[in-house]
Amino acid sequence: MADPTVKRNIVVVGGAAGIGREIARQFARSGDRVAVADINKQAIEELTADSEGSIFGYYVDVSSWESVCHWADDLIRRFPAIDSFIYSAGITNRRPFLEIDWPAWQKTMAVNLHGLFYCLKAVLPLMRQQQGASVVIIGSGSAITGTGGGVHYAASKGGAFGLLRALVAELGRKGIHCNVVAPRVIQSEMLDRLYPDPDDKQKLIDQIPIGRLGQPADIAALVRFLSQQEAQYIHGQIILADGGRTFQAD
C-alpha cells in the first residue's frame, strides 16, 4: 500500500467545475497537493478560497499551445514533480450535424482534443518517472455510441482513445500508467446545459439501470483509484462509467 502520509502532487486540468472540481477536492481532502488549471478564473478563485491552501489555481486556455506552455512554466515552480495528471477540460455545444458551423467544429476539437495533446506534451516531461505515476483522461461514452453532445463532440472525444493507446508503451516504460474514464451522463454544469428541462433529465434516468444520474463523486472515486500505484496494472484501458446505460437490454 502507498504510504498515506506522503503527499502526492496532482494536476487537474479543467478542475474548476463539474467532474474535475470534485476530483480536485477529493485529492485535496485526502491530503494531496493539487494544481487546478482552468479557463474560468472566477471558478478557480472560489475553489481555491475554500480549499485551505491545498489547491493551487492556474489560468490556462487549453486550446492555445502558447497558453499551455506559459502555464507549464509556472506550474513547474510549485509542482516540480507530478505524480498524477488528470485531464477533465471539455466543452459541448450540441446541435444537428448540418448546423455545426466551422467555428463550432474547430472550438470543440481545440478544447476537447488538441488541448489534451497540448497539455500532455507540456506536462508529461514534468512527471515523476517512477512506478505509480499516472495519467487519467476524462473521455466520454459518446465516442463509443456516437450519441450525446453531437457528432463533433463524439469525434473530439474519440481522439483520446487512439492517443491513449499510442502512449501505453512509452509511458509504461517510465512507470506511468494511463487510462481513459468514459462517463455518459453525470450531474454537472455541462449536463444542465445539455438537458435544462427536468423532464428530459427524468427520461435519461429511465435509461440508466442503476436508477440515477451519475454524480461527479462517482467519477472522482474511480479516477482516484486509477491514479494510485495499486492500480498500476490497469494500463491503456477505456473504462465506461455509465450506471449500465450503454449495455442495458430494451
Partner: peptide, 12 residues
C-alpha cells in the same frame, strides 16, 4: 488519435 476520432465521427 485521428483514427479513433474519425471512427467516433462515423458512429455519430
Amino acid at each position: 488519435a485521428s483514427q479513433s476520432a474519425v471512427q467516433s465521427l462515423t458512429k455519430g
